[in-house]
Simulated scan of single mutants.
Amino acid sequence: MTANALHPGSAASDVSRHHGERRPAAIASPQGSTGLGGNTLAQIVEENCPGTQASAGVVIEHLDAQAGTWQFSMDEGQTWRAIRTDLINRDGNLGLALDCDARLRVLPFGGHRVSGVRVAFHTVQRRHGQGNGSYRAYASDEREEGCSRTVTLVLGLSAINGAPPAVHVPRPRNKRALVQRAAAAAGAAGTSLSGSMALA
């Protein structure tokens, strides 16, 4: 089940501010994860924050590290980069800057049943340009012009990873019914044959 909760306010403390940008390394998308294409950040914001004005990018401030391994893609799911939750979840104001067309997904830990995961972010009105996909410092209380306040969502996995692709499973055939149908067809053919011989 998906439960949504909106909580305005900063998700990170004001202990320190980190400067500079760090860019995570890209990893190949495993073939077995084709069902986890991830939703775009634009789709996540639009579906779960209907009151939020249209934005060009987001800065992710917190991700539920207990849920699994978080990844993002900037090329429509062709390659995925691991998100350093240890960087964005610690004290300070360091977030992951992503344009709204980037995709987000979480790969749950084995044996873990996850019903909802926490995501905190704020939107920005301009695209990040060269900073897209990098870790960068953000203002905690006094945001730049065009930045929204922090929003915290509790989302089900399908709201993040997207619905799994539909798989067509052919309906199993009832062998007994097929045998009975064949016998009935053979019986009808035998009756018509004997009738034609009697007429001759």
Rank of each mutant, 00 (worst) to 15 (best):
G187W: 05
V106A: 00
A200E: 09
R81D: 03
V169H: 12
L155N: 04
D75Q: 03
L96R: 07
P50C: 08
R81P: 02
G57D: 02
R90M: 06
L157N: 12
G110H: 08
S55M: 03
I160S: 00
A163L: 09
N39Y: 05
G133K: 01
R143Q: 11
E142K: 09
S73G: 01
H168Q: 15
L178W: 12
C49P: 04
K175C: 14
W70Y: 04
M1H: 10
T123M: 07
R118T: 13
L178M: 14
R136D: 03
A183W: 03
G131S: 09
S115G: 10
S194W: 06
P24N: 06
L87K: 10
G129I: 00
D141H: 15
R171Y: 08
S140W: 10
H62I: 08
R17Q: 10
V45H: 05
H168K: 15
W70N: 07
N174L: 06
S73E: 00
M197V: 11
G32H: 14
D99G: 01
V179D: 15
G162R: 00
V58E: 00
T2N: 12
T150I: 00
L36P: 00
A25S: 10
A185V: 15
E21T: 11
C147Q: 15
L155K: 01
Y135T: 01
